[in-house]
C-alpha cells in the first residue's frame, strides 16, 4: 500500500534535523502511516511533546502540535484532552524526557487512564545533550556520564507502564518498521492510556560509545534481541535471557478519566 507521507509533513520542514540513521525518522514515518490508515483529521489530531531529539517530532507534522517543556508533555496533554475530549491526543518523546525528569507525569498519566497515546522513543540515552545516561541505559553500557559503564539497573519502560496502570502497552523497534504503524493504530483505537515503547537507535551518542561500528549493526542488534510475545510463550527462561518482548504486551478495559470527570461535574451540578 502506498501511504500519503506528503499530506502529513508540514510544508518546507524537510530535511529534518536528526542525524544520519537516527531511528526517530523511522518512528515518525510509522506514526504518519498510522494517521493515514485511520484517516485522521488534522484539526482533530494533536501531538504533544517535551524536550529532546525525539520531542522534535511534532515540529514536522502538519496537525495541531504542542512542543512543551522537558518531561511535562503529559501535563499539557491532559489539559488539552480534558478541554477537547473529542480530539485524538498523541504524546511523544524520548526515554530521558519520559522516564527521568518526566517520570512522575508518566506514571500518573498511566494511573489515570486518560484516553491518549504515548509514543516513547527509547534510544537508551539523552541524545540531544550529548549522550548522558538515562534511566533506560542498560547496566554496564557507556554514556558520557558513565564512561566506565553504567552501574544502575535500567527501567523496563513497558513494564513500568503496565505497573502504573496503562491499559494498553505495546513494544516495537526501529528495525521492525512495518510493525510500527500497526501497533500505533491499535494504540490510538484503544480507549484509555496507551503506551507504545519503541526501541530506537542513536548512532551519534550511544552507538559510537558502545562499539557499534554502524547504524546497520544497531539495527541488526534490535532484530536479534526482539522476540514477538507469541513466540516467547513457547520459549524457556534461558532462551529468553537478554531478549525483549515485542508486540501488544498488555490490554484491558477500565473507566476512562475524561468520562469519570464528566460524571463528577454532573454530580457537582445537582449538588451531591
Amino acid at each position: 500500500m502506498a501511504y500519503d507521507y506528503d499530506k502529513w509533513i508540514r510544508p518546507g520542514k524537510l530535511p529534518h534535523i536528526w542525524c544520519p540513521g537516527c531511528g526517530h525518522g523511522i518512528v515518525m514515518k510509522g506514526l504518519i502511516r498510522a494517521f493515514d490508515t485511520l484517516q485522521l483529521k488534522k484539526e482533530e489530531t494533536a501531538i504533544v511533546s517535551g524536550i529532546g531529539c525525539a520531542s522534535r517530532l511534532p515540529g514536522y507534522i502538519d496537525c495541531c502540535t504542542l512542543h512543551t517543556t522537558h518531561g511535562r508533555a503529559a501535563a499539557f496533554a491532559t489539559g488539552l484532552k480534558m478541554a477537547r475530549p473529542e480530539m485524538k491526543v498523541i504524546l511523544c518523546g524520548g526515554d530521558g524526557d519520559g522516564t527521568a525528569i518526566g517520570g512522575n507525569h508518566f506514571i500518573h498519566a498511566c494511573r489515570r487512564n486518560i484516553d491518549m497515546t504515548y509514543i516513547i522513543m527509547n534510544n537508551y540515552i539523552y541524545g540531544m545533550t550529548g549522550g548522558q545516561f538515562s534511566p533506560a541505559t542498560p547496566t554496564g553500557h557507556k554514556a558520557s556520564t558513565t564512561p566506565y559503564g553504567n552501574p544502575d539497573p535500567n527501567f523496563d519502560i513497558a513494564k513500568l507502564a503496565i505497573g502504573a496502570g496503562a491499559t494498553f502497552v505495546a513494544r516495537g523497534t526501529a528495525f521492525h518498521a512495518a510493525q510500527l504503524d500497526k501497533l500505533i493504530v491499535e494504540a490510538i483505537q484503544h480507549k484509555g492510556f496507551s503506551v507504545v515503547e519503541i526501541l530506537d537507535d542513536c548512532p551519534t551518542t550511544y552507538g559510537r560509545r558502545n562499539k557499534f561500528k554502524s547504524v546497520i549493526e544497531m539495527m541488526n542488534r534490535l532484530k536479534e534481541i526482539s522476540v514477538p510475545v507469541k513466540a516467547a510463550e513457547k520459549m524457556t527462561p534461558e532462551q529468553l535471557q537478554g531478549k525483549v518482548l515485542t508486540g501488544v504486551l498488555y490490554k484491558e478495559e477500565k473507566p476512562e478519566y475524561c468520562e469519570q470527570y464528566a460524571k463528577v461535574i454532573e454530580r457537582a451540578q445537582v449538588g451531591k
Partner: peptide, 13 residues
C-alpha cells in the same frame, strides 16, 4: 521506502 528515516527514497510501482 519503508526504512529510510529521511523520506528520501520512494518507489513508484
Amino acid at each position: 521506502e519503508l526504512r529510510c528515516p529521511d523520506f528520501a527514497i520512494r518507489v513508484h510501482a
